[in-house]
Design a protein around this nucleic acid. Structure first.
Lengths: 196, 196, 196, 196
DNA sequence: ATCTAAACGAGACGGTACGTCAGGTCTTGGT
DNA sequence: ACCAAGACCTGACGTACCGTCTCGTTTAGAT
């Protein structure tokens, strides 16, 4: 990430960027992800459409940035000395973020939907949202391995999939809650699958 | 489920229905789920758009019907006497369906995407596709419980989520394969989480 | 015009024909000529669309029949011995028909509109509605000529055009009334143009 | 009529406007007024449909503008010192416009047809096309009146109706020619009806 | 009394055009 | 150079009617 060298011209408006983020959250909260059209977003933010397209390639890219500002700052990185407790904490914190801001759930669902229809955005989503979180969870397993908590041929990537798979499945399908109890149970199950 | 009482009028054309299904598969195979517009579908099937809207509320509803005809007929119901083997078989067969017809994967991804943007279709998707498969897997666990294979407070629904969670996560994100090896490993992990 | 040879089969339903005429008037009265779609007409008359297309080539043909039943029966044929009085009477009676049934005016306007978009119907309209009335007015002028009321080189067809031109112009544009006073003035003007 | 205040934004494309006018004439010339669908017009003009609907409420409104550009510029205003000669000249010139551009006749017929089915457009048609021409002819009669050529209680509006009534009647029904001879005869007849 | 044949209601069919919405681009004047 | 505004072309949407085509049913005259 380099500091852009400015060679004259009007500087990029941080004000506009914030207005766009705020307008996006307002729209999603008000009418769901479907209300997030580029037209509506520009109008709600009091911004020209060109300003949107100048800085982001698509609606989804904007929303990815928004959700990263909402949640990325604090990817949990627990280190309690026990796999089970680490998992419990990691998942509980992860689940809680979604309770905080009501727009997060619709945003996650919309982002995953957009990623299905736009392969290049799927790549961005993986790099910008999914993989950082996988890395954090992977660290938990690496530490557990060092402590000898994992069973011999435990597939760490599969274990990560177990955790995030259930998370996303419930986010997308909505058939089961995402609360502390669910986090604990899921942590137990994953720990059991991974442990000696 | 009642047989619709016909009181005159031209009967529904089965020919058109089949043409629509076939055209849908052709379009998805050719250009991805994004090529599946109602206009293109009607044109490709040689059908009026009204015929689409007469029988289905949305593009997604059509595709749900298509995918059910492709795959529902044989939801695996293994009963080998062992949870681990049942799981292995169930998941292997489930994964294989997607290898058969190349349109299945894009279809599943598109259906889940549409479900995120249309709550009423999410309900249909759950009732028509997700829940029947959950029920089949649930039966596997119920039989295992009868045999005393499950640990005391094993949460069957969570175990089902583990299996389908990983499945869908990989379908949607595409970071890991869905082959027989993956099925076996996943079956092992789920069995380990559930067993005594 | 031959009597159609019937060789068995259900006879045409007069009931349906009347229901169609009545429904047409109801629709025009209720929503103007624009409400007269074949679908709406069939539904309002409680009749299958095929029944419409079996007996009439177009919406306009139906409406031509309807208006002929409404008004044709009494094309005025005054013979008072004076051109001016004949004209006055002819036009007054013609204008009055339109005050009787409120659907007549929208019908006439709609028929003329349809005739502009369908050349073959224009032919029918001329033969079925316009020409019979021209013939009646022509007879008035022929009698006047025999009485020596016309000026030497009076063009009778132009005189007929003067009368019907003003009539239709006012029907279509609606800028001036069509009442007894208008009839009298118009009769005066036409008589003045035609007389010695 | 105020100049529209522009406060930013891309200005209206005169190029598009001209392309639409030209395409409209091409379509009418090629396939009659019936070929003038909004879809076809947009395609022929290489223009988005939204551009049509942004500036005009209906097909008819576009065509009204087209025909005004074709003909309005030179509404005849003869002033020969004689009612009969003024009329002859006015009508001859009016008739001739239609011989120039072959699309004019179908356009006039289509406009009148549309006006019958859309009351709000009838209003526009009167204000934009019919009334300006009536005004020009009215001026002819007003001058004649000043010269004392009119008979005492001559109804000028009726005289105007006589002229335009015959004109439109022949345009719409097509039973008689619209040439210089017809113009002369009609002028004679109207003059006779109006004169002392 | 049955048979034949056409008209009947209903309503689905392949189409065309509608008027709207959103996407992504372009063109102004203004900061 | 960037901005808000807003017009531009494209293309898909969902709806309304068109005129045609099956269906099962009804209704008469001919057998």
């Amino acid at each position: 990430m380099t500091v852009p060298i400015r060679r004259g011209g009007r500087p990029r408006s941080e004000e506009a960027r914030h207005a766009i983020h705020a307008a996006a959250l307002r729209l999603v909260a008000g009418g769901g992800y479907g209300a997030l059209t580029m037209d509506a977003l520009a109008a709600e933010a009091g911004v020209g459409k060109q300003t949107l397209y100048r800085w982001w390639p698509s609606r989804a890219a904007i929303m990815l940035e928004v959700i990263r500002e909402l949640a990325t700052m604090h990817i949990p990185e627990p280190d309690t000395g026990s796999l089970r407790r680490d998992l419990k904490q990691f998942l509980a914190l992860t689940f809680r973020v979604q309770g905080q801001e009501p727009a997060v759930l619709p945003l996650l669902r919309g982002l995953m939907a957009d990623a299905q229809l736009d392969p290049s955005f799927l790549t961005e989503l993986r790099a910008g949202l999914l993989e950082p979180r996988r890395a954090a969870l992977r660290a938990v397993f690496v530490r557990a391995k060092k402590r000898g908590e994992l069973r011999p041929r435990c597939d760490v990537e599969l274990c990560i999939d177990l955790a995030f798979g259930v998370l996303w499945y419930r986010v997308l399908v909505g058939h089961a809650p995402l609360d502390d109890g669910a986090a604990a149970k899921l942590a137990d199950a994953v720990a059991r699958a991974a442990s000696v």
